[in-house]
Nucleic acid binder design. Structure first.
Lengths: 320, 320
DNA sequence: CACCACTTTGGGCATTAGCCCAACCGATGG
DNA sequence: CCATCGGTTGGGCTAATGCCCAAAGTGGTG
């Protein structure tokens, strides 16, 4: 995916120049146009390109009091190791702007460590968005481990594979889990889990310094359904049998108790490991996710949370 | 030092919110004003406050960033009209790969102008490499002038003659300087400089819209020595008498002061003309060149610079 | 070489941002 | 109670920005 043609790279370089002049040197687009000898409109396009290509990262460096209070409350209610709340856009509760930046900030903290760290990752759109907010870094000392299979049924790699795209960006050793999401049978599952590389990956994951997972919900827009891992009828049956959400595809009920059914018995994801001092971050926000997040917190499927102001408020309202 | 009154803190928080809505959630200031229930102007002030308080961090995630910063530093330290820094290959500090492209880009900017321009040129390998990076163009409106003799002692044309090979490529009117590098005597120099075509060329050069020169260093690989213009003993004596470098064969010391000796008195190159608004670009890079470039900058023998990242860093380290 | 499809360019225009300034507010002291 | 003063507010103006669209350029194909 990093295949950019030479002319595209050249253009990106110009875009970076333009963006630098614009954001860092505070030039107007007119001035940039002069300096790069292009028209004003082209300069504008270059700046826009730099932004849309993600060359420009904006970060807000202020502890917004309200968010900190919410974080504090959630931490104490659910005994969390960490909790980060991004501000919400009050007029658009569905917006997850900001979540990615907050997640990236946490990730960066681990990545910047000189000590080698092992970080484990689930899947999900929010998680992917965090990766996209990471700067390019050199982190050869760390290990990135996938705890959920990255193969689609047809053998292609999942487009939400976190570990690979993250490794591209931060240049760390990475261990994608070369398995589909579900096995066909119990026996196959046992077989696959007995493979040496898989055992090694699970072992790394079990001892990871931090784990980052998305939290899937069970409405019509459930990620499992959207990405074709389950059928609409299955989703319906999950909803009917009280499934509240999923974490690395482990389904759980309203109390966060893992559900044991035939599907789960074929699930190839690493078992969820929560131990006292290693954080397992759930990353999710939005009205649809509130129940799923609340339940995951109740069942201690996660012990750290990255969400936004709106979602945090709803979670606290849910349990009070 | 962080003594902020309560109301100031409150204001900062609003500023943070406004800035978040502006930069992260991409709201317009009007929308922010509505959401925070202030006037549009106040919203603008809040955003400006957040920026000036450093709450907003903009990062540009592209290798070119470093180059732009270095260029800015050099420009302000030496009061340069222009400065272009090409990225260096970190694993090979000697490589001048990229320098030629950067130089060609600047040249092209002048050549693309519809207005007739007069461009003056010294000699040098780096400069030649820039020419080789130029695309073929039709530039009949421009004049290309040589400010250094292109004749070898035996009457053949120097292989580094810039103006001729450039004219071949861009099809512009050109004025090679039909003189050797050095005259035999003062009298001969006066005679040659009095020739009408030479006077015309010097006149054009003195009023050139931009001048491009290489920067020669004084180690064993000095271009003057390599090309047979001076003898090893002369080089040795230059080194002993504190010659730091040369620009169009004008020798100068560590402070960029021109050196006056018998050889210089016979030098036929055009005098160096630096005036406030016409750039004289020095083009050079590499560890051997650092001292020569630094001195030329100090002495204002050049007022614009094209070099690479490594060299720029060394220059800045040299003078700090 | 002409043709078509696709991209890039820059003029024109509506929207947005930045800033000056007069009016206003509220605390303080006479 | 009023005068003063530092600071804040929002009207109004201009510069800057973002975007549409027609036109020019580019590259691939028969």
């Amino acid at each position: 995916m990093n295949k950019k043609s030479n002319s595209e790279l050249k253009k990106l370089e110009d875009a970076a120049r333009a963006a630098w002049l614009y954001y860092v040197a505070k030039n107007t687009q007119d001035e940039i146009a002069q300096k790069l000898d292009v028209s004003r409109q082209s300069a504008q396009r270059l700046v826009a390109l730099a932004v849309s290509e993600g060359l420009i990262k904006v970060r807000l460096d202020h502890p917004i009091t309200r968010c900190m209070e919410l974080a504090e409350q959630l931490k104490s209610k659910f005994n969390l190791l960490e909790c980060e709340i991004a501000p919400s856009d009050p007029s658009d509760i569905n917006s997850t702007y900001g979540l990615a930046q907050s997640g990236a900030k946490i990730l960066e903290r681990y990545l910047k460590s000189k000590q080698p760290k092992t970080l484990a990752f689930g899947t999900g759109r929010s998680l992917k968005a965090c990766i996209d907010e990471l700067p390019n870094m050199e982190c050869e000392q760390h290990n990135l481990v996938s705890i959920v299979g990255n193969m689609m049924q047809d053998g292609s790699a999942s487009k939400f594979d976190i570990v690979v795209s993250m490794a591209n960006r931060v240049n760390a050793k990475h261990f994608p889990l070369p398995l589909p999401l579900f096995a066909q049978t119990h026996e196959q599952k046992a077989l696959l889990h007995d493979l040496a590389p898989v055992k090694n990956i699970f072992n790394l994951a079990a001892n990871a310094d931090a784990t980052f997972v998305g939290i899937g919900h069970m409405t019509q827009s459930s990620p499992l359904l959207m990405d074709g891992f389950i059928e609409p009828e299955q989703l319906q049956s999950f909803q009917n049998t009280g499934v509240a959400g999923e974490v690395v595809s482990w389904l759980y009920d309203n109390n966060g108790e893992l559900i044991d059914n035939s599907l789960m018995q074929c699930l190839l994801s690493a078992p969820l490991q929560i131990n006292a001092d290693k954080p397992v971050f759930g990353i999710a926000a939005g009205p649809e996710k509130v129940t799923a997040i609340t339940s995951a917190l109740k069942g201690k499927l996660i012990n750290a949370l990255i969400t936004n102001e709106y979602t945090a408020e709803q979670i606290l309202k849910n349990i009070s």
